[in-house]
Every structure is written in structure tokens, then in C-alpha cells.
């Protein structure tokens, strides 16, 4: 395997792709959103339950490549227990991590395990895979003042 590929497909990513955390629908979730990448057809649903301003429960469902599945899985672990504004900040840091131009991956202490996605920056075509779950989370939180109805 080339070193670039090893950098991208880290064991943590492959593990989370095989057995993702929090991979289920959340019945009666107050917040949810669907994300779709029309380029590759990847679809993801993110479900959220808040306790006041804090993420009490977060799950996802969907199908996609290893990068998008692992990213969604690790995202649910990362934002659990965080406040809504902390989760939003985390997204900004994550986006910076996977798009920054610097060659040597700058790990961000605040990102913890999410730093395994630093290798994505070498693959501009794959950045959307890594951020799909986060965009969907953001959409779900957009109306956190106003829960989406269950139709």
C-alpha cells in the first residue's frame, strides 16, 4: 500500500466502516435531516435528541463509501454530550482539517479521534465524502429552536 493510501484508509476508519457506532434510526427524534451527495448517490440520515442545549442522543443511517460511513460514525461519537455550539465549532475545525492546504497534517487537539481524517486533504475529490455527515448534522441543528415535524 502506498503511504498516501495508508494515511487515508487508517485502521480506525476501516473499523468504523465495518462496524459503525450509533448506526440506527432514532424513533421519535426531535431533530433529523437527510444528506445526499448527488455526485455519488450517497445518502445519509442523521437523528438527534437534545437535552436542553446538549446532544443527548445522536444516530445515523445510510449507505456510502468507507470515508463517509466512518466519518458519520466518528461524528456521532464526537458530538455526543456536546452543546449545540460546541458541535458547530467541531464541524468548523473538522472542515479545516480535511481541506487545509498544509502538507503535514496539523492535528488538532480539540478534534481527538477525528484527526484520523487528516489524510483526506490529499484527496480533494473525497472531501465531500468526509463532510457529508457533518453537513447533515448542521442541517438537523439548523432548526434546533423549532423541531422538525414527523410529517
Amino acid at each position: 500500500m502506498t503511504s498516501d493510501l495508508r494515511e487515508l484508509y487508517q485502521e480506525v476508519i476501516l473499523d468504523h466502516n465495518r462496524t459503525p457506532s450509533n448506526f440506527r434510526a432514532l424513533e421519535g427524534a426531535a431533530y433529523r435531516a437527510e444528506g445526499y451527495n448527488p455526485l455519488c448517490g450517497d445518502k445519509i440520515q442523521v437523528f438527534l435528541q437534545l437535552d436542553g442545549d446538549r446532544v443527548e442522543e445522536v444516530t445515523f443511517q445510510g449507505a456510502g463509501c468507507a470515508i463517509s460511513q466512518a466519518s458519520a460514525s466518528l461524528m456521532t461519537e464526537a458530538v455526543l454530550g456536546k452543546t449545540v455550539s460546541e458541535a458547530r465549532l467541531l464541524f468548523e475545525q473538522f472542515q479545516e482539517l480535511v481541506t487545509s492546504e498544509t502538507q503535514t497534517p496539523d492535528t488538532d487537539e480539540g478534534l481527538g479521534k477525528l484527526n484520523v481524517f487528516a489524510g483526506v486533504r490529499e484527496y480533494p475529490m473525497r472531501v465531500k465524502c468526509a463532510t457529508l455527515a457533518w453537513h447533515t448534522l448542521k442541517a438537523a441543528l439548523k432548526d434546533s429552536a423549532e423541531p422538525v415535524s414527523t410529517e
Binding site: D4, L5, L8, G64, C65, A66, R126
Partner: peptide, 22 residues
Amino acid sequence: GVHAHDVGTILDQQGIAVRVGH
């Protein structure tokens, strides 16, 4: 067990151009 996009990226690293997607 392997998504087409992951296949496409790994092949590209070996100089192999294929199309992945719908």
C-alpha cells in the same frame, strides 16, 4: 463490502482510471 468510490481512489493511486458512481 467495498464501496465503488473507495475502489476508485485506491485504483487511481496505482495509475488506473476507472469510473465509479451511478
